[in-house]
Amino acid sequence: MSKDRKKNSLKSDIIYPIVGFIALLLVISFMITLVLDIFIDGFEKLKDPSFYISYPSRFPEKAGILSGWVGTLLVMLGAIFWSLLIGIPAGIYLEEYAKKRGFLGKIETIIEVNINNLAAVPSIIYGLLALGIFVYRFKFGESILTAGLTLSILMLPVIVVNTREAIRRIPRDIREGAYAVGATKWDTVRDHILPYSLGGILTGLIIAASRAIGETAPLITIGALTFIAFLPPSPFTTEFPFLSYERALEALMSPFTVLPIQIFNWVSRPQAAFQINAAAAGFILLVLTVLMNALAYYLRQKVRRKYIW
């Protein structure tokens, strides 16, 4: 190697880190610009308390996000319920019960590959699934129930994967110890596996929920309305037993809107005043996502420190 060339290649090791760092700074400034842009655009509305307690309106200055955030809250409650109901048992099955050989072993492999594939399906396809199955074949309509089910399918792969990872970290000794004192498989799962993996499962749930809360496309596909000037009926009553089954069902079946759809609707309007509303609501959604991700990050660190096997 000639002296000149050697000098040049050593120089590359001084220049490259600078170039790489600039590329990284570019990404970080992209992120900062995004956050600042929607914060500044929406500031006027963000500081207006009536924005949070008003229904959408034809007049941009009167419009608010009340039906949006109530809808988001109800839909997310449904989505979390359904995705945990299926996701945790599915994760436990794959880690603790699944046979590695034989016919059941084949099914296990199919389930596993399938979950990996589900995680990569475009979210709008889930919307088409929900439109075809929940809305038209099951006749759930364009309701809060349908929306919750749709988002739960999106969350499911994340929850299964995180449940499995959390369970896998529990050492074999714990299970052997439980079996040695006569515990059945279910005893072991209930008293040891589940409690120890709860932190990891919770982390997965929060990450999944933070993705689902910003999802727009699948909910547009199932026919979420953009203009909702009422709230679903409250299932609580003043008389005993304070909870009305009919009204709860009515709430589940009522049409809805969610924050992201409200934002989409405002962005699509030509009047600039609506775009202030879109920016404000977008900033709120972004803050929610940041908070959920930060919480998941914190929980993950905490769990790792709590159980060191």
Binding site: L85, I86, G87, I88, P89, A90, I92, Y93, L94, E96, Y97, A98, I107, E108, I110, I111, N114, I115, N117, L118, V121, I125, Y126, L128, L129, L131, G132, I133, I153, L156, P157, V160, K185, W186, V189
Partner: peptide
């Protein structure tokens, strides 16, 4: 309990089957 856990795992397959069925039948 095994049956419950197995069903949950199996439902995840139904989601894919459902997607393919809906897309294929309406297409």
């Amino acid at each position: 309990m095994l049956a419950v856990f197995f069903t949950a795992g199996f439902i995840t397959i139904f989601i894919t089957v459902g997607i393919v069925y809906v897309l294929l039948s309406d297409a």
